[in-house]
Design a protein around this nucleic acid. Sequence first.
DNA 1: CCTGTTCTTGCACGTTTCTGCATGTATCGT
DNA 2: ACGATACATGCAGAAACGTGCAAGAACAGG
Lengths: 252, 252
Amino acid sequence: MLAAERRDHLLELLAREGKIVAKDVAAELGISEDSVRRDLRDLAGEGLCQRVYGGALPVSPAVADYRSRRSVAPDGKLKVAAVAAGLVRPGGTVILDGGTTALAVVHALPQDLACTVITHSPTIAAALVEHPRVEVFLIGGRLYKHSAVACGAAAVEAAQNVSADLCLLGVTGVHPDAGLTTGDAEEAAMKRALSARAADTYVLASSEKIGTASRFRVLPWDGISGLITDADPHQPVIERLTTRGVEILPAG
Amino acid sequence: MLAAERRDHLLELLAREGKIVAKDVAAELGISEDSVRRDLRDLAGEGLCQRVYGGALPVSPAVADYRSRRSVAPDGKLKVAAVAAGLVRPGGTVILDGGTTALAVVHALPQDLACTVITHSPTIAAALVEHPRVEVFLIGGRLYKHSAVACGAAAVEAAQNVSADLCLLGVTGVHPDAGLTTGDAEEAAMKRALSARAADTYVLASSEKIGTASRFRVLPWDGISGLITDADPHQPVIERLTTRGVEILPAG
DNA sequence: CCTGTTCTTGCACGTTTCTGCATGTATCGT
DNA sequence: ACGATACATGCAGAAACGTGCAAGAACAGG
């Protein structure tokens, strides 16, 4: 039993069972509990698991619920959401866009994370009520039925009064030439306004968005810090983005 | 069963069921009640739940409400909501407060009604997405977890920019002497701000609120146009209100 | 092939943490 | 007011933990 092999085994076990009991694994593999503990400590140090008394748990509850939530949101969106949730630092401030992927991000946030979330989506705001230590600031305005977010002049104006470390943006199209696009002009403007208020902007793009373009440009490539996607990094479109200097955060 | 795992289980249970009974959980998991109590005490210490005799409740009642909204609202609230929905004129503008009764009003609105709804509740806003002809204006601001509505300076300021024909307000206490009251000072101020922007204000008060008073005054009796309630019109408290000149809209 | 170094692994030890029980107290329902 | 139930606290055994240490494997260089 190689050390690296053991590590992989632990991670796989964590993904499958949703938890690791040090004692059990030690017995199963015929190694001492000390070794298991050492491995878990290392993995926790790399942020790959959460060390608890008796064993370890996944960093995000969403990982464990993988199977049960698969029905709710497509697999790709969950992976993207899990990575995005990992970007949110305790005590930090994040601007969260509307949409199903953003909603998945909310569910992927640790239950007891303390941070501030700014959003123009009532759906996102309502979902965040279940995170007791998350402070929510709601951006008001005229509600666009199309995607159930506040847009328009009042919303853009309200957005001018906030600042954040991070902005997580959803789009409908990700194309090397067309850039980041969406289907509604008002929404595009709103996304721009939100992105402008954050130090870093990351785009949530599950694989089905890759290579497509919608009618309205949201941002050019140099307007964002990175792209979070579950698409294959070796896919031609992704490689073209990389050559353009776009940082890709793989959600494999 | 890891200790940390148990903690997560409790939080999840709290979100799903809206309450925790220490005895039941202890039996279900096959552990002593002491451990459950200890966990609940810790969680309460971190502000993740509210400790009560016999078990625990969510920090915010809004969490449980949101989860259990599939279960039908109490009979009284439905009746009140139906009458309130009848006050909304096609083409008109209504300011809708947060809370379960207000949510019931949304469901009581005709599916094809065309009007404008102004609200500071993300829950209400999200529910209105299913009414295609209703224009929604969302009032933003800091979200108060207690009842899941936007309050505070920013919300009050945003409210100054709207006007409406009608304001439907929820309260927690309706008392002949104390007037209309609620449990949070910020919320009370917000309700006042909303009421001031409408030509008419009607209060939604299902029978269990009648005769009770909470800590903070929302409005005096002459600040409202009427009270919608399913309580017996011949009840002493109601009759005292009538003699004070309050118009009662019975929701029998 | 030998040797020194580094890394890993299991064990021993003292420490911390968890858990269930017993005790006495507070709170609830009747 | 009373019994029943829930509670906080202290305690003891058990389990898990971190650390230091030594034996062994892997490896590089001579």
